[in-house]
C-alpha cells in the first residue's frame, strides 16, 4: 500500500462545515502530528481517513483508487479513535484476543508487555476502566496493530505525565521497529515536536499548515533580555506573545527572516511552539 491522499474533502454536519476542502497526503513510514484545538476537525478527519464516516464531498484515495472501491485496504489502517467502540462488558485480555483474531498482524505478546508496563489490569472489564486507562488500552491496541497506517486520536487524553512519556517512548520504539506511518492528533504541540517529522495544523475545518517540524520552527524565534532592550528590539516586529520575569522579558516573534543584527544584550532561542500554535489558530479564527 502506498500513500493515502485526501482529495477536496468536505464534511458538513447539517449546516456546520466540519471540514472545508481538505487536501492532504500521508506518506509511508513517517510520524505526523495533527494539531488543532478542540472542535477544529481532527476527529472528523481521522474518522473519514479510516472509513468510519463518509465525507460530504471529496474522496480518500489510495493508489489512485477511491477507498470505497477497495474496501480491503481498510485492513491496512488502524484508528484508535475518540469514542470507545470496544464492547463495554468485555475484559481487557478478551479485547486483545479478539483484536488478534481480526487483525493478524496484531502483536499480542507486545500488548501484554505494554499492559504490564502501563499497569493496565487485563482482567478488568472495559466499563470499569478509568478515562486514563481506557486511553491506555486504546493506545496499546494501536501500538500493537502493526498495520501500515496507525492513527491516534488524542492518545494522551487523561494520562499522567509518567504515562505520557511512556506512550511517546513506545510510539517511537514501534516506529523504529517497523515501517508503519503514525499520525498523532493532539493539542500538546511541545510534547510531540521532537518525535514527529511532519506537522499538520487544522483550524476550523481548514488545513493551515502542512509542513515539516523544522520549517515550522523557522517561522519565528524568541528574544530575551532586559525589558527595555527587548522592547526596543521588538518595536517593529510581529510579536505573538511574551513572558516577563523580574527585569527580563522573552518575546515570541513571528518572522521568516533570519536575524541579522542582534544587540549583544539580547539572546535568541527557539520559538515557543505552543505559543506559535495558539497564535496561528487564533489568528485564523478572527478572520
Amino acid at each position: 500500500m502506498s500513500n493515502i491522499n485526501l482529495v477536496n474533502i468536505n464534511k458538513n454536519y447539517r449546516d456546520v462545515a466540519a471540514l472545508k476542502n481538505v487536501n492532504l497526503t500521508f506518506e509511508r513510514n513517517k510520524i505526523y502530528g495533527l494539531l488543532g484545538r478542540n472542535g477544529a476537525g481532527k476527529t472528523t478527519l481521522l474518522n473519514i481517513l479510516s472509513n468510519r464516516i463518509f465525507p460530504t464531498s471529496g474522496q480518500v484515495v489510495i493508489d489512485d483508487k477511491n477507498i470505497n472501491d477497495i474496501p480491503k485496504q481498510i485492513s491496512n489502517i488502524y484508528l484508535s479513535g475518540e469514542s470507545n467502540l470496544l464492547p463495554e462488558s468485555m475484559k481487557v485480555k478478551e479485547i486483545f484476543k479478539w483484536t488478534k483474531e481480526f487483525i493478524p498482524s496484531f502483536d499480542g505478546e507486545l500488548a501484554l508487555r505494554l499492559a504490564q508496563a502501563f499497569e493496565l489490569p487485563i482482567k478488568k472489564r472495559v466499563q470499569s476502566l478509568s478515562t486514563g486507562y481506557l486511553t491506555i488500552l486504546k493506545d496499546i491496541l494501536a501500538l500493537c496493530a502493526n498495520t501500515e497506517f496507525v492513527f491516534f486520536d488524542e492518545p494522551v487524553l487523561g494520562l499522567d505525565a509518567n504515562h505520557r512519556e511512556m506512550f511517546y517512548k513506545f510510539l517511537l520504539e514501534c516506529y523504529v521497529n517497523n515501517d508503519s506511518t503514525y499520525v498523532v492528533s493532539t493539542h500538546h504541540i511541545d510534547e510531540v515536536a521532537n518525535i514527529i517529522e511532519n506537522i499538520i495544523i487544522i483550524n476550523e475545518g481548514s488545513i493551515i499548515r502542512d509542513t515539516t517540524c523544522e520549517s515550522l520552527l523557522s517561522e519565528g524565534y524568541t528574544i530575551s533580555g532586559k525589558i527595555e532592550d527587548v522592547d526596543k528590539y521588538i518595536a517593529d516586529k510581529n510579536v505573538i506573545g511574551f513572558d516577563t520575569l523580574a527585569n527580563t522579558k522573552s518575546a515570541y516573534i513571528l518572522s521568516a527572516e533570519k536575524i541579522t543584527e542582534l544587540p549583544e544584550s539580547l539572546q535568541v532561542s527557539r520559538i515557543n511552539l505552543q505559543k506559535l500554535f495558539i497564535e496561528l489558530t487564533k489568528k485564523e479564527a478572527s478572520k
Partner: peptide, 14 residues
C-alpha cells in the same frame, strides 16, 4: 456491538 467492534478492528461494512 458487532458493528462497533468490526469498525474498531478495521473490518469492512460488507
Amino acid at each position: 456491538t458487532p458493528f462497533n467492534m468490526l469498525m474498531q478492528s478495521s473490518m469492512t461494512r460488507k
